[in-house]
Design a protein around this nucleic acid. Structure first.
Lengths: 207, 207
DNA sequence: GTCACGAAACTGACCAGTCAGTCATTTTTT
DNA sequence: AAAAAATGACTGACTGGTCAGTTTCGTGAC
């Protein structure tokens, strides 16, 4: 009988599986060797396939690279969103999101490397994927913060946009520093300091 | 008669002048085109000299590049140190340093680009120059913060090292973000938010 | 179950362009 | 006229992308 649909799925399935495995191998190699340093031949040999095959799945080296970065940022956003969803109390939600973010890049340092490579090699060809995803996911956070301001839980003398920027930049800077010179403290200790300072600052408050 | 000493100075002077001008031109081009994208020939033609001449001043492309990064970070450290020295009141000193840091990279975005290029192209050949300089200049800040803790002006429930790290990462992240997607607010507004949040946090404090 | 055959997937030798670094020669300085 | 500085044509190693040829897959006929 016309097992056509079924068949087609199998074919397409195999194709997308391989596509995925190419992206995963390439992501590791691009991170390790850099965009320029990672030859297409190397990616192919890593997978045990011929170089020409890569070009059946991606039009060129750059497209393969962008696919790697995009996969990484998608995974990050998913992890953070899911972590935030496990909490209910407002400040706990913020805490969970921050912790998940740091933990993700801690466990996947190669994705940080890709962000560097992207900026280093395509600075005027492409808006950084990181910020593309950040902005796409910012709406809910903006509303969340605004609500907390309305409830008197967050300061009303600093625009929400500035708070989001500042906390975001703190996380962003921490992610890079951790990769570049390693964490100087345990993830927990670092996380606690960040949360404490972001929420209450470094000054001793008069009671 | 033997104007030897004088002569030598003149000679060495001319040499170091040219060396400096090579570094300055190269810094701009490396930032604009990337380490790989910036050909030695290009640097030479920018200066109106032959490619071979570059090799009389630097052993190779990498050495020239590292000289560029180092010059940038030296300038930054100098600017920040001098700015901090203009203030006397503790929190004003911190404010001046942060403002000078942001203003410096705002006025010299090409140096940020060089930091990216350095990391992207030499991740396992060299500790990032930025952190090399940061650590070399951290001692006084550590002592400064510790004194403020002792005076009850800074919190004593967060280790000084964590405070330095966190504030440093916030500045570092801000510098990158400003370059990557542009500042979303004026330098002043951004600076105010950073200082306010670093010192007092985003939460509304009960009086 | 197996055979035939067209389509899809895969291969890897090859090409064309690139560029850091060299060095024999020329120009400038003292 | 010797030394120092500068030149730029040249080379050797490298690599993204191509494509003519080969292998594998899926399907329908028997």
């Amino acid at each position: 009988m016309p097992a056509k649909p079924n068949d087609k799925v199998t074919r397409a399935d195999r194709r997308s599986k391989r596509r995925r495995s190419i992206i995963e191998a390439a992501a590791r190699l691009f991170a390790e060797l850099g965009f320029t340093g990672c030859e297409m031949e190397r990616v192919a040999s890593e997978l045990g396939i011929a170089k020409g095959t890569l070009y059946l799945y991606f039009p060129g080296k750059q497209d393969l690279f962008f696919a790697c970065v995009d996969l990484g940022m998608q995974q990050m956003q998913t992890v953070v969103r899911e972590a935030a969803a496990t909490a209910s109390e407002p400040f706990e939600i913020i805490a969970c999101a921050i912790r998940a973010y740091l933990a993700f890049f801690d466990a996947n340092p190669h994705y940080v490397e890709l962000l560097i490579q992207e900026r280093a090699n395509f600075k005027d060809r492409k808006r950084p994927t990181y910020f593309e995803h950040r902005d796409a996911n910012r709406g809910p956070w903006r509303k969340f913060y605004a609500d907390l301001v309305a409830q008197g839980k967050l300061r009303d003398d600093i625009p929400v946009e500035r708070m989001l920027d500042t906390v975001g930049n703190l996380m962003y800077g921490t992610m890079f520093t951790n990769l570049f010179i390693g964490r100087s403290a345990s993830l927990d200790e670092q996380f606690n300091a960040i949360l404490e300072i972001a929420l209450r600052g470094i000054t001793r408050q008069r009671q």
